[in-house]
Simulated scan of single mutants.
Amino acid sequence: MEKKSTNRLHNITLFTLFVSSYLPLFVLIAIKQISDNSNFISWGGVSLEAFKIFFLKFGLSTLLIVVSIIGFLGFKLTFRNIDETAENGIPVVINKVRNKSGEAIGYIATYIIPFLFNEYTGWYECFSVLFLLTIIYPIYINSSLLLINPLLSFWFSVYELEYIENGKSRDGFVVSKNKSLYDDSEIKIYEIGYKLFFAKNIN
Rank of each mutant, 00 (worst) to 15 (best):
M1S: 15
K4H: 15
N7P: 05
R8C: 06
F15C: 14
V19D: 00
V19P: 02
S21F: 00
L25A: 07
L28R: 09
K32E: 13
Q33A: 05
I34R: 05
N37V: 05
S38T: 08
F40T: 02
S42R: 13
W43F: 12
G44D: 11
G45F: 02
V46H: 10
E49G: 12
F54E: 04
F54Y: 12
F55W: 15
F55C: 08
S68Q: 08
I70Y: 11
G71N: 03
F72P: 01
G74T: 02
K76D: 07
K76G: 04
L77E: 15
T78G: 03
R80C: 06
N81M: 08
I82C: 04
E84R: 14
T85C: 10
E87Y: 14
E87M: 11
N88S: 08
N88E: 15
V92D: 03
V93G: 06
I94L: 05
N95F: 07
N95M: 07
K96W: 04
V97F: 03
N99H: 06
K100F: 06
Y107V: 02
Y111L: 14
I113W: 05
P114A: 05
L116M: 11
F117A: 08
F117H: 08
N118P: 09
E119W: 14
E119I: 11
W123K: 13
C126E: 07
S128N: 10
F131N: 13
F131A: 14
L133F: 12
Y137A: 06
S143T: 12
S143L: 07
S144V: 10
S144F: 11
S144I: 09
L146N: 04
I148D: 00
P150F: 02
S157F: 06
Y159R: 00
E160L: 11
L161Y: 00
E165Q: 13
N166V: 07
V174L: 01
S176E: 03
K177N: 09
K177C: 01
K177E: 09
K179P: 05
K179Y: 11
D183T: 11
S185E: 15
E186A: 10
Y194D: 14
L196T: 05
N201M: 13
